[in-house]
Simulated assay, not measured.
Amino acid sequence: MPFEIRPWSEISDRFNDTLLLGNGASIAVDDRFRYQSLKQHAIDNGLFNTDVQSLFDFFHTDDFELILRIVWQATNVNKALEIDDQKTEQSYRHVRDCLIAAVRNIHPEHGAVSDKLPEIAKYMKGFKKIVSLNYDLIVYWAMMYGNELKNRHMFKDCFVGSEFDDDWSRFGDAYGNHDSCSLVFYPHGNLIFARDKLENERKISSGADGLLESVLQKWERGSYVPLFVSEGTKQQKQKSIQSSYYLNTVYREVLTSVQDSLVVFGWGVGEHDLHIIERAAKSNVRRIAFSVFGDDQGYCNRVSQLVRDEFQQPCEVFFFDAESLECWTNA
């Protein structure tokens, strides 16, 4: 018996709590996000040298951010102790330059996707919380667009200035000229987040048009390293999450705060991301809706079995057409 895949409009009135976004959401905006991995992109484009590849092999990871942070910390220790170690410094610069080149090659500029932002902001407005697993700037740009509309709805990322306020639930209350709001979180980090030399976590701010370049320039100057988990196994990603106060707070608290309904859009729920669904299973979810591209019955069968295995409480599962009207970029 095949699973029924409905138009979004048929079930949308039952889902308004949390929206979980995977890489398919970014691919729907720009096809350049259809890459295997940042590391593989760098290899395919001849950006790696032998030393950089040795670092990835030694630490048994594909995560650019982790390798960059490890080598960056090593260079800072060498400078503090006045140790002359040009090879470590060169390796740091090469890993950094590889990451910058990969992001520049893959990530579209604001102007290339600005026509999609109104539809995305309209769709996100229908949820109390938006949780994006993507490191790119699409959701952030849509937030900025939505906040400029002055339509009595506000998107908030729970940062005050450049610092995260861990009393994040208080931002869910509408106040002032706003009747409603949506809170936005990134459990795997984002390009807008960075660490300084003392491991302080910051949000990088700039105008929407120049934000991508502002982020990359801060990396180039060496004052910050990025805070996002780009690749790796489930266990490696969990370790990276635990190393960050922001990521760990989102993982422990936000993912377990879902009330009643969860919408999953553009997420393949691969083995490397099972920690996310395992965490959501500890919440009060009673209904989950998964987006489906085409008539992928194999995906429907796999995720419905996954819900039965992971969720202890009864949970109703729905499937909807990712390309139906009023959904994401079709809003």
Score class of each variant (00 low, 15 high):
42 A>N: 04
53 Q>K: 15
48 F>N: 06
16 N>K: 10
54 S>Q: 14
36 Q>D: 13
41 H>C: 05
51 D>Q: 13
24 G>E: 08
36 Q>G: 01
39 K>F: 07
41 H>L: 10
32 R>K: 13
34 R>H: 11
47 L>D: 09
25 A>Y: 02
38 L>H: 06
16 N>F: 09
38 L>Q: 05
43 I>F: 03
28 A>Q: 11
24 G>C: 03
55 L>Y: 12
24 G>T: 01
17 D>K: 07
25 A>M: 01
50 T>H: 04
45 N>G: 02
18 T>W: 01
29 V>Q: 07
26 S>M: 03
30 D>Q: 06
39 K>D: 09
54 S>I: 07
48 F>W: 01
31 D>H: 11
50 T>S: 11
30 D>F: 13
17 D>C: 02
34 R>T: 06
52 V>C: 15
33 F>N: 06
47 L>A: 05
51 D>M: 08
27 I>R: 14
51 D>K: 06
38 L>Y: 14
20 L>A: 14
23 N>T: 02
22 G>Q: 05
33 F>Q: 10
17 D>A: 06
37 S>F: 02
27 I>W: 07
32 R>D: 10
29 V>N: 02
53 Q>N: 04
50 T>D: 15
42 A>P: 05
26 S>V: 02
42 A>Q: 03
19 L>A: 05
36 Q>R: 11
51 D>E: 15
25 A>I: 00
47 L>V: 00
17 D>M: 07
49 N>R: 11
44 D>Q: 13
34 R>G: 07
27 I>V: 15
15 F>E: 08
19 L>D: 10
33 F>L: 12
28 A>F: 02
33 F>S: 11
39 K>R: 13
33 F>I: 10
25 A>H: 02
54 S>D: 15
47 L>R: 09
45 N>V: 10
24 G>P: 05
53 Q>H: 04
53 Q>P: 00
53 Q>F: 04
38 L>S: 06
44 D>L: 08
24 G>H: 00
17 D>T: 03
51 D>T: 09
48 F>V: 05
47 L>I: 00
17 D>E: 12
26 S>Q: 09
40 Q>G: 04
24 G>L: 08
44 D>S: 15
54 S>W: 08
44 D>A: 10
18 T>V: 08
17 D>N: 15
18 T>D: 11
48 F>R: 00
44 D>Y: 03
23 N>D: 08
34 R>W: 07
